[in-house]
Design a protein around this nucleic acid. Structure first.
Lengths: 158, 158
DNA sequence: TCCATATGATTGACATGTCAACCACTAGGG
DNA sequence: CCCTAGTGGTTGACATGTCAATCATATGGA
């Protein structure tokens, strides 16, 4: 709470850099496997997952964006690309003429279904298998601590 | 070592997702502050840091790429943008007529110098302060474990 | 009803990332 | 010396990300 500002020690900085690098590396490897095995990006997968879990395999654009924590413009562009590839289609929203509904196509359902097992195996083999069960629990705690810290502290100043 | 394949449990998967999300959130926040405070992206910072630490504030392109673990094409494009903004300039390499040397300009030195303290403060306030000292040590261990696992296991198959 | 304002979604301009193709030059064997 | 293979770097095509502006519609008072 003191306004006294101090800088991270070189030890703390080294941890930050190791954290950055290891995370980037793991994520890149998981994404590369998903792309190679299923020709899907992590964004594609995230959207297919959300739609697959949704009622009737469809979601209002803004709800989908909120669910996966994406900006609407980002989602709009991504849905455009996925629509071109036949994974989703967009339908007008009956309740609200402004709205759009993203609907999973049959090809989208199939792509998601076929990608799931290899993707989960990649997560296990590249992430879960790298850590002891204890470490895995701690990672969960740390993720929670980081998340809570961001939520309660240090908002982005306008 | 058994070829028996299994999928992550829902607990393990939840840790993976929490890890992904918290990491993305912290990184986005740190990057946003760097951009707001110093008008630099994390890529700009990485390059400025590497050049600042180098002999004569300059590096052969390929050495720079190797140092920061970037593909050459990625570095080439990024240097092009930074050159346009006056942060670096490119000089021909005397030893090897194919080569290019990236040199920090005076503006680049100044931009890096002015950005460092606020950036380190952001890392402290958004990352270091979120964790207990014990947790910070564990993050380091986990980063090491992930890195080693990737290096020794599961190469990307061709 | 009518209008001011808010909301849902798309678009455009640009930064950033990957990948493959390309070009210029180097290097090493004949 | 010459030719071929490799290396260093750039480029082009495209996917992905941010942000601000725009457009149509909705909504809640005057």
């Amino acid at each position: 709470m003191t306004p006294q500002r101090h800088l991270p020690t070189s030890r703390e900085l080294a941890v930050w850099r190791a954290y950055l690098e290891s995370f980037e590396a793991v994520r890149a490897r998981v994404d590369a496997r998903l792309h190679r095995d299923s020709d899907l990006s992590s964004g594609d997968y995230k959207i297919l997952l959300a739609l697959s879990e949704a009622e009737s395999h469809e979601l209002r654009s803004s709800e989908l964006a909120a669910h996966i924590l994406w900006e609407r413009s980002r989602l709009s562009a991504h849905l455009g690309r996925m629509e071109k590839r036949g994974l989703v289609r967009r339908a007008p929203c009956p309740d609200d003429a402004r709205g759009a509904i993203a609907v999973l196509t049959e090809a989208g359902r199939r792509a998601f279904r076929d990608s799931t097992i290899p993707h989960l195996e990649a997560i296990r083999s590249l992430f879960v298998d790298a850590l002891t069960p204890d470490q895995l629990v701690v990672v969960g705690d740390i993720a929670t601590a980081l998340h809570d810290h961001l939520s309660t502290e240090h908002p982005v100043r306008p």
